[in-house]
């Protein structure tokens, strides 16, 4: 276990990058470099991170990075892993770093293929629940009721459960994280680095621009998402499901905050009616009943 003060001070996400003020994914990217160090090759499709780098011929990311087409993150990472094996270069971690659109919608077939081939890499989806870099269009990860530019009255469908889709591939490690809990995220990355095979981490990364809240609430909203139970922190290691702190204390419904506290802070949920909120609360409670059963049986 590490503490915040023990994390390295070197920065590989350089100052003066192009992210919006209060960007959640940037916090996650900084933590990624603090956990994995500089021996990392990033593969980034079209997503906010391709903007965060800044304009050609400059980049604000201090490690080797390949920008690739939207659907081919996992395919390009597979190629890099194969090249590293051919050149016998060891100690390099290949990381696919994609947004939610590039993972749950467009990149899912390449990712599924890489998982089936047991490619040795870490795939990280940072989920801001819409296509952020093109101006917030609805994605498969947008939650029920959320405003986006293509769902102006709120999305009518539920969010895809991507971590469970990846767990169904029987890969060795699947985890969820949130940059509001940095130590939890860093520990999961360090664990994933030591495991051979495909590792998948799904991060909830609050986005002030798209979620319509003031910039200083990014970390607060990440914490609220976890405390209300809308986002659970868990890991599935070789098929064994385990809730992590602080989510492991929230199995009892009385300990979870009402989802309304999280929804009311965000402008994208302004259209929700009381029935919608009751529906979301009911779904969260159902999810937690499932997590409780999974955590006691360890079986997925």
């Amino acid at each position: 276990m590490v503490t915040i003060k023990e994390l390295p001070q070197e920065e590989y996400l350089l100052k003066g990058h192009a992210a919006c003020a209060g960007c959640g994914p940037s916090i996650a990217l900084r933590l990624l470099f603090k956990a994995l160090g500089k021996n990392v090759i990033l593969v980034v499709p079209a997503c906010c991170t391709s903007i965060i780098q800044g304009p050609y011929p400059y980049t604000s990311i201090g490690v080797p990075l390949q920008n690739i087409l939207f659907e081919s993150t996992a395919a390009a990472a597979s190629g890099i892993v194969a090249a590293l094996q051919q050149k016998k270069l060891e100690g390099v971690t290949v990381v696919g770093w994609a947004g939610d659109g590039g993972t749950v919608d467009i990149g899912i077939q390449a990712l599924s293929g890489a998982a089936e081939r047991e490619t040795d890499f870490i795939y990280i989806c940072y989920d801001n629940e819409a296509y952020g870099n093109t101006g917030m269009q609805r994605s498969g990860a947008t939650p029920y009721g959320a405003w986006t530019t293509t769902t102006p009255t709120g999305k009518r469908e539920r969010k895809k459960n991507m971590p469970f889709i990846m767990a169904a591939h029987r890969i060795p490690y699947v985890a969820t994280a949130c940059p509001s809990y940095p130590i939890d995220f860093v520990n999961k990355l360090k664990k994933a680095k030591e495991i051979r095979g495909t590792k998948y981490i799904h991060i909830l990364a609050p986005c002030p621009t798209g979620w319509r809240y003031t910039t200083e609430k990014t970390v607060e909203l990440g914490k609220l998402a976890v405390q209300t139970g809308l986002w659970a922190l868990y890991e599935i290691e070789y098929g064994k499901f385990k809730l992590n702190s602080p989510s492991d204390r929230l199995v009892d419904k009385a300990k979870r905050k009402p989802v309304k506290e999280y929804l009311a802070l965000q402008g994208r949920f302004r259209n929700l009616t009381e029935e919608d909120i009751a529906k979301i609360q009911k779904w969260v409670d159902e999810d937690w009943e499932r997590y409780r059963k999974l955590a006691s049986n360890y079986l997925l």
Partner: peptide, 18 residues
């Protein structure tokens, strides 16, 4: 090959956004 170099302040001094 288009290659970008790591640069401090790739977007300039972003303190002006504040």
């Amino acid at each position: 090959t288009p290659l970008s170099s790591p640069t401090l302040g790739s977007m300039g001094k972003t303190g002006y956004w504040r």
